[in-house]
């Protein structure tokens, strides 16, 4: 189930048949994708799917075991000097000097950065940490640390930004504000590679996404493409007076009955869905049944994700 990459140009990120092993364990098994300049691409997957390994290779922390990666046209591991000054990265966790204050932390990283488009105060205001400037980093909450991390990742206005689970631990308001900040960066032309466990985050932010499982990309495309490829479903509460084996097939599809709910998984074609629904309603009328909690809906990203995660 693969949807081709988006419109092709000179990609900001290019991954070809990436493989990465640690001893006998193959964490990434032949992953390929491209991210165009100014695009936000999300990598989704369960824990251990290979997202962080992939992003770490792209960040230049390790050389790939097989295949190749390019960031802004350069190998991020062997050509670090060319890549680092133009990229920003947000680690999954930690990485702070706990005894420094928030302001000192920003000042240090701003000082070492070759580009200084704004002051430390402006940077802290951007992530709403200006009131914490004098607080030691170890005293910040988990969400505040994530915001500080985002500030550090973006302070040099990088061309490519790697965000590894950027909103973990944030409260809903901070998460929304972070999304706005990320959307502004993308609108300004920054290329973003994002990993997240929050599907809503991917739906909100990603131009395209890939769902990884066991070191491979199982699905890729825009949110609409990924979801549309998954089809529609009709659900209703299982009528007590009808045995599961007597439920009708719709468009040749047999239902699944789980925890009192009947579900038909249909093709993405709306005409098929409409036909199936008409057939179901006719059957219910014929048997004098009232179908409670009847719903027809497109698959959600969560449905797709869970199906991939369960190896369906």
């Amino acid at each position: 189930m693969t949807i081709p990459d988006g419109a092709r140009g000179a990609p900001a990120i290019e991954v070809r048949d990436l493989r990465q092993s640690y001893g006998d364990f193959e964490a990434v098994r032949g992953v390929s994708f491209q991210v165009q300049p100014g695009e936000l691409f999300a990598l989704l997957g369960t824990n251990g799917a290979g997202k962080t390994t992939t992003i770490e290779v792209l960040e230049g922390f390790s050389a790939p075991t097989g295949g190749s990666v390019k960031v802004l046209g350069h190998d991020p591991f062997t050509e670090r000097a060319r890549v680092r000054a133009r990229t920003g990265l947000m680690l999954q966790e930690g990485g702070f000097f706990g005894d420094l204050t928030v302001a000192e932390t920003v000042r240090f990283w701003r000082d070492v950065s070759p580009r200084k488009p704004c002051s430390a105060t402006e940077i802290l205001e951007r992530v709403e940490l200006a009131d914490k400037a004098g607080v030691r980093v170890r005293q910040l909450s988990g969400g505040q640390k994530r915001r500080l991390d985002l500030a550090l990742a973006t302070l040099a206005r990088p061309q490519v930004l790697f965000l590894d689970e950027p909103t973990t631990g944030m409260d809903p308001e901070a998460r929304r504000n972070t999304w706005t900040l990320i959307q502004d960066l993308v609108a300004a032309g920054t290329t973003v590679l994002l990993t997240t466990h929050y599907l809503e985050e991917a739906e909100q932010l990603a131009g395209r996404l890939a769902i990884m499982h066991a070191g491979r990309i199982e699905l890729t495309g825009t949110v609409a493409e990924v979801v549309a490829a998954h089809g529609h479903s009709i659900r209703f509460q299982h009528p007590a007076q009808v045995a599961a084996r007597h439920l009708p097939a719709l468009n040749g599809v047999r239902p699944r009955v789980e925890r009192g709910t009947v579900e038909y998984r249909l093709s993405p074609d709306p005409a098929d869905t409409q036909h199936a629904l008409a057939r179901l309603l006719a059957w219910a009328s014929e048997h004098r049944l009232v179908l409670t909690r009847l719903e027809v809906r497109s698959a959600s990203l969560e449905d797709v994700f869970l199906e991939v995660a369960h190896g369906a």
Binding site: E59, F61, L91, E93, G94, G95, S113, P114
Partner: peptide, 14 residues
């Protein structure tokens, strides 16, 4: 342990 080295290595610092 605290991933500070990782952050430093991931920056422009050599």
């Amino acid at each position: 342990e605290e991933l500070v080295l990782k952050r430093m290595r991931g920056s422009v610092l050599s």
